[in-house]
Computed example of a mutant assay.
Amino acid sequence: MDKEQLAIARLQDAARLSEHRYKKPLMVTYSGGKDSQVLVALAERAGINFEVVNSHTTADAPETVYFIREQFKAMEEREIKCSIVMPRYKDKPVSMWTLIPQKLMPPTRLVRYCCAVLKENTGRDRFIATGVRWAESTRRKNSRGVMELMHKDPAKRIILMGDNDEKRQLFETCNLKSKMTVNPIVDWSDDDVWDYTHSEHLPVNPLYCEGQKRVGCIGCPMAGRGGRQREFMRWHAYEKMYISAFERMLDVRKAKGLPCDWQTGMDVFRWWMEDDNISGQLSMDDLMGEER
């Protein structure tokens, strides 16, 4: 079975389980990137009942936001249900810029609270499909599977690393109420994704045509120092918004009597961008000991 047919079979299995367990269609997550574009195309080809959901992170590039709106309009014309979910935290509307002061620290590679709040809350107690791929990082290769049943108790999580995993029956019969996930293209390479995109003539986020390698949140620590520097040169207003959020974060830390060796939002920003020339920094242990 080739990769396209295998991905379609995974989606069909997930759609069946979604209708059986949750009495709702499979929820396909959509970020406006190449992987989610392929995911939607495969779901359509699979002939399944599904809906498409975008988690509005508030830190995506304007071009990505516009592209998502255009694609959702086109999908709705094809009678696909689409929705954009606005983020909430502690039952209140939130953005990246208001979340940072509440968390009392910048988002980092080690503490990715932004993903947890702004993206990963979507689809709670549903069966979702994502474009996660092992080729994206070693961490994903070691921790993500073809299908997953996530639970706050790690001992109750079930991750199927292959289509014939011996835990498959347990996965299908488990009655835990939690989010279930299928990653249909988890074993696809970058070349596989682009080859499929071109062969099927799928719409492409215009940022890729500008040479961007990723189209996630601007300033994401996972993009690496060089990538983030290029992003802030391209979208300078976002640098100002981060610095402003860091200023408010420092105000809250001072008001709470917490350690605050940084003097300005720019000091925080330079530390956050991994500038080794900044002295008197708080250690990560100091920060992680506070609000999560």
Rank of each mutant, 00 (worst) to 15 (best):
P184D: 05
E19P: 03
R109S: 15
D286T: 12
A223V: 02
M266P: 10
D261A: 08
W97V: 12
M241T: 10
E172H: 13
P101H: 12
Q12Y: 05
N164F: 11
D251N: 14
E136D: 07
S83A: 13
A9D: 13
V268W: 07
E120L: 09
T122K: 04
A59N: 02
Q37P: 05
R126K: 03
W272H: 01
T181K: 03
T58D: 11
S55A: 12
R21W: 11
L6N: 12
L6R: 15
Y208G: 03
R21Q: 09
M266K: 11
R69V: 06
M233E: 15
C209Y: 08
V52A: 02
N183Q: 05
L176N: 14
R124C: 02
D35C: 00
S137K: 14
H56S: 02
P101T: 04
C114A: 05
V85E: 07
R225T: 01
R230V: 06
S83C: 03
P25T: 02
G289K: 10
E210A: 10
K156N: 13
G211H: 13
G219K: 02
G162S: 14
R69L: 05
D91G: 09
K24T: 06
W97H: 14
N175R: 08
Y242Q: 12
A155Y: 09
M273H: 02
R112H: 09
M147D: 05
T264C: 02
V268Y: 06
M75D: 09
D192P: 01
E210S: 03
S31V: 01
F72T: 12
V111I: 12
A9H: 05
D267T: 10
R157A: 12
Y208H: 10
T64R: 06
R214E: 11
E63Y: 04
Q212F: 15
R270L: 06
H56R: 08
W272M: 01
R253L: 10
T264F: 03
I128C: 12
C115D: 15
D286P: 00
A74T: 07
E51S: 06
R140H: 06
E166D: 10
